[in-house]
């Protein structure tokens, strides 16, 4: 994964020194794609021995963004929904260590600003060798923005406040920062559905935790809610593949 990121960084650097921008401008765009994510919990800047050796959790999800595009700058909102694979989870809450088998769902909302490079056109000599391949122009981009996230930890059963809980979830609300680099097809019209590949890193720190009774999915019952500054720190690495829908 890290080698792939370094290769993408090299490609992006090559793209930055290329030709003029081609793509559609002064228009809204809705983009969507698929996500593969790896998350680390409590590892952001924490070197406490009890956190060592903890597994990363892997997740799959959906990415959407709605943005307005100018010539080189794009701004809008994006959201990433991820569903974690079931794993052995361990984290602290109110100084209490909670462990159990379960999964983590997360949703984030990120207002972003995105800056594009110039367009990279493949040289004609390369195109002539690859006649059957559609070598469209591409550009690289860099995107960043503050991010707010809610993580729901669904454990099969767990002990909290000296009580065994079933059909409960713990939700952490966190705030952080997200930064992405990527490449996107530089097509004149968005109706040609330009596709993109993106690598995104985000870091979060929790500010509120809620214990929620989920036994009735229609009527959510929040049992307790309190400040949870630094209870959980999350570092997420995401690989996103997507396209412009309209």
């Amino acid at each position: 994964m890290y080698r792939l990121i370094s290769n993408l960084l090299i490609i992006s650097a090559l793209l930055i020194g290329a030709h003029k921008v081609l793509a559609y401008e002064n228009d809204f765009a809705l983009k969507a794609g698929f996500i593969f994510a790896e998350s680390k919990f409590n590892k952001l800047d924490d070197d406490a021995p009890e956190y060592e050796g903890r597994d990363e959790t892997k997740a799959f999800g959906v990415h959407t963004s709605f943005s307005y595009t100018w010539k080189r700058v794009e701004t809008g909102f994006e959201s990433r929904l991820t569903l974690g694979k079931e794993a052995q989870l361990s984290f602290s809450s109110q100084g209490e260590q909670i462990e159990g088998k379960g999964s983590i769902r997360s949703v984030d909302i990120t207002p972003f600003i995105k800056v594009r490079s110039r367009t990279f056109h493949f040289p004609e000599t390369i195109k002539s060798y690859m006649e059957t391949i559609n070598l469209t122009p591409w550009y690289a981009y860099f995107k960043l923005g503050p991010s707010w996230m809610i993580q729901s930890v669904n454990l099969d059963d767990f002990n909290i406040d000296q009580e065994l809980r079933k059909n409960h979830k713990i939700s952490y609300e966190s705030v952080g920062f997200s930064m992405s680099i990527g490449i996107e097809e530089d097509l004149e019209f968005k109706t040609l559905h330009p596709c993109f590949l993106e690598v995104s890193v985000s870091a979060y720190e929790s500010y509120k935790v809620s214990l929620v009774d989920t036994s009735d999915s229609k009527e959510i019952n929040i049992l307790t809610q309190r400040d949870a500054k630094q209870d959980i720190k999350t570092f997420q690495l995401m690989f996103i593949i997507g396209m412009t829908f309209f």
Binding site: M1, T132, I133, N134, L135, T136, E185, C195, I241
Partner: peptide, 23 residues
């Protein structure tokens, strides 16, 4: 697992370039 995933993503990336119809 990581190697398989990287190869899959790379193949997916390559398919972006292929024309829809070559016949």
């Amino acid at each position: 697992y990581k190697k398989t995933l990287s190869i899959t993503i790379f193949i997916q990336f390559l398919t972006c370039f292929v024309y829809a119809s070559e016949t």
